[in-house]
Design a protein around this nucleic acid. Structure first.
Lengths: 348, 348
DNA sequence: GAGGTTTAGTAAACCAATTAACAAGACGAA
DNA sequence: TTCGTCTTGTTAATTGGTTTACTAAACCTC
């Protein structure tokens, strides 16, 4: 069953030329007369020759593959990102190696290190937290890196969505529907994405900061924990801006268990819009991320030619988001506001 | 920034021994006196030596990586499978290369061929349709293959869930809740999994075959199309057994657009239970697959020792499923078996 | 027919490991 | 003293490509 693999030497022998000739011809940097060319082609097809990629990579010093490091491929946001990346990479003839870190710094470091050892042609890093020194050290020996989704500083270009705009859209929507006291449940507070969203939220809310902020990693479990804390310490929040669908699922689970009705008791806006939120009860209003475009953009940036230019390392591609209105935000009348004076202006 | 990579030769020079000694010592098949050992260790740490994997793979003729070929990583069922596989593979020191075929036979063939060329240590194939000859031909030159999720015959062991049991659980549930006329929307009709589910369904329904069967690939788009066909040609079906969450999302979208209420107008049971069905409106009753265990099982089987034994190629691991009851199946009174009797009962 | 250029192709170094085969020295036993 | 056996290594072949430097022959020009 397992056929014998033929090598370049075999092809050369069959075509009565040297290995160098075959190699150069096949790689397109040698023009040959029709006769020789025909002999080589014939030998290649007859022997069903395909070059040994290990030898090729050793010789060339590259791997024709890019490493994709992400927290958890089971998370739909990351898996859709991965789909876009895999598809784009395939078009460029690159393989993709997958490394799920489960948000553990040691695994993240190990994955980056493996990528370096394997001399990948590029690395796409998507992480949920600020990378530690170990990771940064390993990143240092890679030349082509793109940081995706969170703009952690790693001396590499970033591709991410406009988090500030997302926050602002959510804030504005909550403001116009009459909400004045809102809470935020989201990813790590030290991430620039979280900061930007909160900034945007406050701006959209005409300068009113959220009453409460709960932060942890983007997992369903965290969503449940944070939702419990939110309910325990609730100080009149009428709405909740949730930093990811993953957290939102956890939040909704707790709300359902505790009999908290959405949107009657609490309005909700989620972020990402990668789960089938339109089928939820109620359908969840969300900030929609351009997930596919994010992935494509990351690959394009990675495989671009001019990485010698140091300017590329500070490049930031910020893709716009939009708000998809559904049924999880309730319109309320902002009455006598304890902290707020009369606010009746409505922005478009 | 980019440090110089040191080779075995450098280590040997620094430790004043030959490369062979270093190589054998590092690979554990040479005992050395403390002195020499210390010198080598010191050189390794000082030069920050890591072996060049390309050279290593060329020399050893293997790749320390397994290829994962699946229809679409953006689909949560496949992405959760991938997560389990990646995690298990990592434990065994294997890398995972990802190939999404988008259900296109040419891409499937290309992926299998690439896996063969790369001399992967194993291949996990999950496909939505019966592989064509091209694919089978390429599969022929791989030695270690595990077919996952669908038991297509590829001269390789299979890991899948007990589809017959799943069908039967669904059928029994529908039967006991009073349904007598049911429809099926699922994956390709020529797949053994589909056949098994239909068999099981009929058995659970005390021998009553489904009134209608609509089949196509497991995509949301297919779900929409098949749901439309179902509604157009409906012949009194009171319940629908849907072959995957992905299809189910499409079906629910159409039902919502057309004002078909679940479960009042049609009851639904889905298959997979990988979407957050418990948060849907209504919460969807489903056959729950042991997704993580399926993935782990596939890797374990793949990396098992005794692949010389031909018996392994016919092995089938069938993992049990269970029914998770929610709110999408309505209890009805099976009266005179015409199309629609009077329906006035309401379930909580 | 000398000189220059193009064409067609080769030999050999190189990439960075693994490993079979072998050798020098130390030590113990007969 | 001599033989055998460890111990501690070494030399060199091998894996399968790529690529530089080079050569031999043909072809063109004057």
């Amino acid at each position: 069953m397992t056929k014998v693999r033929h090598s370049l030497k075999d092809v050369a022998r069959h075509a009565s030329v040297s290995v160098a000739t075959v190699s150069r011809y096949l790689n397109g940097n040698l023009d040959l007369p029709a006769n020789t060319r025909g002999r080589i082609d014939a030998a290649v097809t007859r022997l069903d020759y395909t070059p040994n990629p290990h030898a090729r990579r050793l010789s060339l010093g590259r791997s024709d593959s890019i490493a994709l490091i992400l927290p958890d491929i089971a998370n739909p946001f990351f898996s859709r990102l991965a789909a876009a990346i895999a598809s784009r990479a395939e078009e460029s003839g690159q393989m993709v190696t997958l490394h799920a870190t489960m948000n553990r710094p040691d695994r993240e470091a190990a994955a980056v290190e493996a990528a370096g050892r394997n001399m990948v042609d590029g690395l796409i890093l998507v992480t949920d937290h600020v990378p530690d020194d170990e990771v940064l050290r390993h990143l240092g020996r890679l030349s082509r890196i793109v940081v995706l989704d969170e703009g952690v500083s790693a001396n590499a270009p970033c591709v991410l969505c406009d988090n500030r705009q997302g926050g602002e859209l959510a804030g504005r929507h909550l403001w116009t529907t009459g909400h004045r006291r809102v809470g935020y449940i989201g990813g790590r507070a030290d991430l620039p994405g979280t900061v930007a969203r909160l900034d945007g939220l406050r701006e959209g809310m005409h300068g009113i900061a959220p009453v409460s902020v709960y932060a942890d990693s983007h997992t369903r479990t965290s969503g449940r924990e944070l939702a419990l804390r939110f309910l325990e310490r609730r100080r009149g929040e009428t709405a909740l801006f949730v930093g990811s669908d993953e957290l939102c699922v956890g939040v909704l689970e707790i709300f359902r268990e505790r009999g908290v009705r959405v949107p009657d008791d609490v309005s909700i806006i989620s972020f990402d819009d990668v789960r089938p939120l339109h089928l939820f009860a109620p359908a969840i209003t969300a900030i929609t991320q351009p997930v596919e475009r994010l992935g494509q953009c990351a690959v394009d940036l990675l495989l671009r030619g001019d990485w010698t230019d140091p300017a590329i390392r500070t490049e930031i591609r910020r893709l716009p988001v939009h708000l998809t209105e559904r049924a999880s935000v309730r319109r309320i009348e902002p009455r006598q506001e304890t902290i707020e004076p009369t606010n009746k202006e409505t922005r478009s």
